[in-house]
Design a binder for these strands. Structure first.
Lengths: 140, 140
DNA sequence: GTTGCATTTACAATTCTGTTGCAAATATAA
DNA sequence: TTATATTTGCAACAGAATTGTAAATGCAAC
């Protein structure tokens, strides 16, 4: 596991530090998108600012992508393997559960092409679906 | 105009106050979605907090709906006539221009139905498209 | 028009989110 | 082991948003 984490960092020309390793490890163990607040609670030994900077560095290097959320600031999720510094490949649907409030990437569902009225030129789209996730659906 | 504004408020069981009238009037004269910051600049005579509470009240009562935005906090737009306290009818696409940064409701384009993986139940979807709007497209 | 009461507002204080500058610490390569 | 560029922690700051409370105001009944 830790070898894999170090590999990800080196592959993106980043130094292997304790904070970065713990952030990536947490991303790998969670299936949902993560925000700064959640990381700050989880990684108690690191400064708020360091976590902000770690997330921004990962975003720039293409290790994570931003996930749209309606409340509570930005969320992040690990990119799939075919992302790099220059081109993100996150054209998939995101799902927010109204029960557990967790945000999940639905990688297997892409965003359909939308035809806009005359004059509008689309460049990028993000689709957030709210509802009940598989875990909460079983419990209810 | 002012009669129409007062009617909207009374129809939603709200008292007709100066701040609420000015907020609705501003919504009616703008075609794009509006955030707190823009209202605060426009309505100089009212306290920041009052504007926050006015927007929240309007949201609860179904006078406005929230429009997803990637940066700079929540934006709001007037609901169409068939919205009420219990059911919002804002299943349309939203467009954000990368030039002028304005957010527009594209009421004439609905969000297509998305088929989610087994176990996920969709209740509500919001779709934000970024690109160049009709006005900026002409100018460029 | 005046009165009474519930709603709404302004103000102060606080919390949460995110950024910047800089000195100390540390990862990496030589 | 050492040199150096990168990263971290700390302090300070800026903006977004919320909460409590007393004063002001809308509105209905008289």
């Amino acid at each position: 596991m830790q070898e894999r984490v170090a590999h990800i960092l080196k592959h993106h020309q980043l130094r292997v530090t304790a904070c970065r390793k713990q952030v990536i490890t947490f991303f790998l163990t969670q299936r949902h998108a993560i925000g700064h607040a959640e990381l700050e609670q989880e990684l108690e030994d690191f400064d708020r600012v360091t976590i902000y900077r770690t997330l921004n560095t990962f975003l720039e290097k293409g290790i994570v992508h931003q996930v749209p959320d309606d409340v509570g600031g930005a969320k992040y999720a690990l990119c799939s393997d075919d992302c790099d510094e220059h081109a993100h490949q996150d054209n998939h649907v995101h799902f927010k559960c109204v029960e557990c409030h967790k945000l999940t990437c639905i990688e297997e569902v892409g965003i359909p092409t939308i035809t806009l009225p005359e004059g509008f030129v689309a460049m990028k789209a993000s689709l957030l679906i709210k509802g009940v996730c598989e875990t909460c659906g079983i419990t209810a």
